[in-house]
């Protein structure tokens, strides 16, 4: 039971983790992107289109790795295009970030539902098997064997996107905190004026970070549709709610990738917790508020204890206009 719960928490948390990592990169350059739910939907839509394209090209032959590749590629491209719209509007055209983000959410969610409901979804469950393929572990016996099996089920029973997400957390940590590029990125987030005066291409970095971040966030949508829900819930997907919680998770993680990884498992655990409690169907409905209430509590606590190392990038939410120095 505990093993199933922990494994479920990780596999649920990955949805939040992708979006959280993507949004972290975007916020590091000083842009608060409220379009994450829409971008995740665009990612899911892109993945679906990519996979249908795969079946159109290769027919019924299942080459797992290619299916996953098509899914990831198209998902990132579509989500990246969403990011491009957002960055064009906010970076080049100085549009209000909150409004642009909300418009992007309206557009992305709408587009996914509109195109998705007119799409051939019959092959998605089959395709999702390629995403879900875990590592096959042996079947040892005895006490140690049980522990080994539990360990494998919690950590090694997942699909490839789960490992990719945690690998990304490590990569993003290294890039943002240990390289010169990361230093530039953080400098732009703290003070774009200073960064600009040092010859850093503020707009270029903003564009790249927002587009890459959006691409990563889009994988969250892809993962939800094709791994977590097994390709069965495409249009009815609750991606929008996940998106908002991921934005909250970025605050909870204090803009740090590793904390984001731990937080996402926590959020995932909270989401699936009611299923593991001995309660009736009616009570299950009321327990659905649990993740949101906890998010609120997290928001309140992070705002009460605002420490120096847990502050958002200083220019977050403010557009940079060169002539305004």
């Amino acid at each position: 039971m505990l093993v199933t719960f922990l494994a479920g928490a990780i596999s649920m948390g990955v949805i939040y983790l992708y979006a959280c990592l993507g949004e972290t990169i975007i916020e590091k350059v000083g842009n608060l992107n409220l379009g994450i739910p829409g971008i995740m939907c665009l990612g899911a839509l892109g993945g679906a289109i990519g996979i249908n394209l795969y079946y159109a090209i290769f027919g019924e032959v299942t080459i797992g790795i290619l299916i996953v590749f098509f899914g990831i590629l198209f998902s990132m491209v579509f989500a990246g295009l969403g990011g491009l719209i957002y960055s064009f509007l906010t970076v080049s055209l100085q549009a209000n970030q909150n409004v642009t983000g909300l418009a992007l959410t309206t557009f992305g969610v709408g587009l996914m539902k509109f195109i998705g409901s007119n799409m051939n979804v019959s092959r998605f469950p089959q395709a999702s098997l390629s995403f879900k393929n875990g590592i096959n572990f042996g079947n040892p016996e005895g006490f140690l064997g049980t522990i080994y099996k539990g360990f494998c089920e919690i950590f090694l029973s997942h699909g490839i996107l789960v490992y990719l997400s945690f690998a990304l957390a490590v990569i993003i940590f290294i890039v943002v905190y240990k390289t010169r590029t990361g230093l530039y990125i953080r400098a732009i987030g703290e003070s774009p004026q200073t960064a600009d005066s040092q010859g850093i291409d503020v707009r270029g970095y903003k564009y790249i970070c927002i587009i890459v971040g959006s691409g990563i966030a889009g994988l969250g949508g892809l993962y939800y549709v094709f791994d977590r829900s097994g390709g069965t819930t495409f249009v009815e997907a609750a991606i929008e709610a996940f998106g908002w919680m991921s934005v909250a998770l970025v605050i909870f993680s204090m803009w740090k990738p590793f904390r984001g990884a731990l937080g996402s498992i926590l959020f995932g655990g909270l989401y699936i917790l009611p299923q593991f409690l001995p309660i009736s169907n009616t009570q299950l409905k009321i327990f659905a508020i649990l993740p949101y209430v906890v998010t609120v509590i997290v928001l309140i606590f992070t705002s009460i204890f605002d420490r120096k190392d847990s502050q958002p990038p200083k220019s977050l939410g403010i557009n940079y206009f060169r002539e305004e120095r």
């Binding site: 418009a103 587009l111 998705g116």
Partner: peptide, 16 residues
């Protein structure tokens, strides 16, 4: 069309 979301797509585009 199976879904009523065409309006959301258009509204999003108008806002952009």
């Amino acid at each position: 069309l199976g879904s009523n979301d065409l309006s959301n797509v258009i509204i999003g585009l108008i806002f952009f």
